[in-house]
Each structure stands twice: as structure tokens, then as C-alpha cells.
């Protein structure tokens, strides 16, 4: 049995919002009988692109995380729905646009905040993976069709085939702890959920400061070596995929025959330790 899964690569999302706009194109002013009633022109984001900036000027990165309905296999909305939300055999969760009248409680039932309340129509609404188009033979939902980078993918596979992809591509789900078995999987989620330590190493020689390329930076946590990094031609180093609020780390920085330096940092979120100068 093949079912639908979505794969979102956070590293490839560039916040163009083509997905959001294509979704609005499909659903605003259009009723797809049995699937969805019209989405209001403004205010709802069935696929919601979240932003995450890490670091401080000038050593930063920025990532985006599109967030559609997770179409969970153990969906809290279905549990709460008393029959007005259901799962199709292809894995898609549909909130019945007729039966769900007045059910604002469904909005709160979703731990991912992807169900929206349509006050005018008095119904909860959300992404349907464009089920109405799939039933007409379309191969992709609208958001996937317009994604310029391939950050969004849709796969129609058996559970077995898909678990192979999860393993090969190291996919994760959002808020695994909720145990809702989402059908939306993420790649490179660390750009959103983890943090980094960055800095620049420099060397002063004959009164001139230069970037220190090939400096060796070793990261320790409680005296245990975690990782090692060699600086690039700008003297920059980066240790990524650290847990936020993970406490104290020690950096040992050595450059050629200079006496090595030790820096201690406290990691709450991503941190730029700035310039480390050898002279």
C-alpha cells in the first residue's frame, strides 16, 4: 500500500514563499467539495515558513522551515474530532468542511499549530496535501510544484520504501516527543533546532593582522574532546549541531608554533566568540 509523505530540506529552503502563495492560489476563493472550503485571502498560512537566524554579525546563518499539516498517523485532531476529521487510506488527514462547523476546538488540538480558524465560515481549515488534485491525477501538490530548490518533495511509497529513505537521508520529524507519527519529515533540521560556536582566528606579525588559516581549534565538553576544526582562509571555524542550553564548552586554539589559547564559552544559543588573536 503506497501512501503520501512529504520531505522538507531546511537547508534548501530560501524563504521565497512560492509554496505559501501557490497554496493561496489553489484555495482562496475556490471550494473543493468534500476536501476544503475557500481559504480567506489573507491571514491563514497552511504552509507556514518559519525563520531562524543563528549567530551574531558577521558570523551568522539563516534557515527557514516550511511547516504544513503533518498529516499525522496518530493525529490529535482526529482524536479530538468526534468524526469530523479522518485519515484517508493514502495517509492524508481531511477535516470535513461540512461536519466540522463550529469546531474551533480542533485548532487547539493540533500541537503543531497548523490548523487555522475560519471565522467567516465557522470552520477549522488546514493543508490537505492537495488531495483533490491527487484524486485527479496530479503528481505533486501545488507547493511542491513551485519550489525552486527542491526543498519540498512529495513521495508516494510503501512504508518499507519510505523507511529506507528515512534512514538513507537521515530524516527527522518535528517534535518527535509528541509521538503523533507525522508524515512530514525534515532534512537538516539542525539548522533550526541546534546551535553553533563560531569564531575567527587571526595572527599579528610585523604589526599586520592577518587571518590565521589552518589554525587548529578543538572543542571540549567537560574535558572530553567533541570535535576538531581547521580554520579556513578567513581564519573562521565553526562547530555545529550542538544542543541549545547545553552549558559550558572549552575551545583550545593553536596556530603553528604559537602558544595555544583556551576559551570557555557558555552555550545557550548559537554564539560568535569573535576574533582570537595570536601575536
Amino acid at each position: 500500500m503506497k501512501t503520501w509523505h512529504m520531505i522538507i530540506d531546511v537547508e534548501k529552503c530560501e524563504d521565497c514563499n512560492n509554496c505559501l502563495l501557490a497554496c493561496k492560489d489553489e484555495y482562496v476563493n475556490n471550494e473543493w467539495k468534500g476536501y476544503s472550503k475557500p481559504q480567506p485571502n489573507l491571514g491563514q498560512k497552511w504552509i507556514n515558513v518559519q525563520r531562524k537566524e543563528r549567530g551574531t554579525f558577521p558570523l551568522i546563518d539563516v534557515a527557514y522551515r516550511p511547516t504544513p499539516c503533518m498529516n499525522c498517523d496518530d493525529a490529535p485532531c482526529i482524536k479530538a474530532s468526534k468524526g469530523c476529521a479522518s485519515k484517508r487510506s493514502d495517509g492524508i488527514v481531511i477535516i470535513d468542511p461540512e461536519k466540522s462547523k463550529g469546531r474551533e476546538d480542533l485548532v487547539k488540538s493540533c500541537p503543531y499549530d497548523v490548523i487555522w480558524w475560519n471565522a467567516e465560515l465557522n470552520i477549522p481549515q488546514k493543508c490537505t496535501f492537495c488531495a483533490h488534485l491527487k484524486d485527479e491525477g496530479w503528481k505533486e501538490p501545488r507547493c511542491v510544484q513551485v519550489c525552486p530548490t527542491g526543498a519540498l518533495r512529495i513521495e508516494n511509497l510503501t512504508d518499507e520504501e519510505f523507511s529506507q529513505i528515512i534512514e538513507n537521508e537521515k530524516l527527522e520529524v518535528l517534535h518527535k516527543e509528541l509521538k503523533t507519527s507525522p508524515r512530514v519529515y525534515y532534512k537538516n533540521l539542525y539548522r533550526f533546532e541546534k546551535c553553533f560556536i563560531v569564531g575567527s582566528v587571526s595572527i599579528k606579525k610585523d604589526g599586520i593582522v592577518d587571518c590565521a588559516e589552518d589554525a587548529r581549534v578543538v572543542l571540549y565538553k567537560e574535558k572530553v574532546k567533541i570535535e576538531e576544526s581547521i580554520t579556513d582562509n578567513y581564519g573562521d571555524f565553526k562547530f555545529d549541531k550542538l544542543d541549545e542550553d547545553s552549558g559550558e564548552y572549552t575551545l583550545e586554539v593553536s596556530y603553528k608554533d604559537k602558544k595555544s589559547k583556551t576559551i570557555t564559552v557558555n552555550v545557550a544559543k548559537s554564539i560568535n566568540v569573535g576574533e582570537i588573536l595570536f601575536d
Binding site: D15, N17, L20, L21, K24, D25, V28, N41, L42, G43, K45, V49, R51
Partner: peptide
């Protein structure tokens, strides 16, 4: 003009 672009959080803020 109530274009859907207004809903992009990096374009305008409601």
C-alpha cells in the same frame, strides 16, 4: 492591494 504577498512575514507585518 490585498495581494497574497502581504501575508509573507518578511514582506509586511500585520
Amino acid at each position: 492591494k490585498e495581494s497574497t504577498i502581504n501575508d509573507i512575514s518578511e514582506h509586511r507585518a500585520l
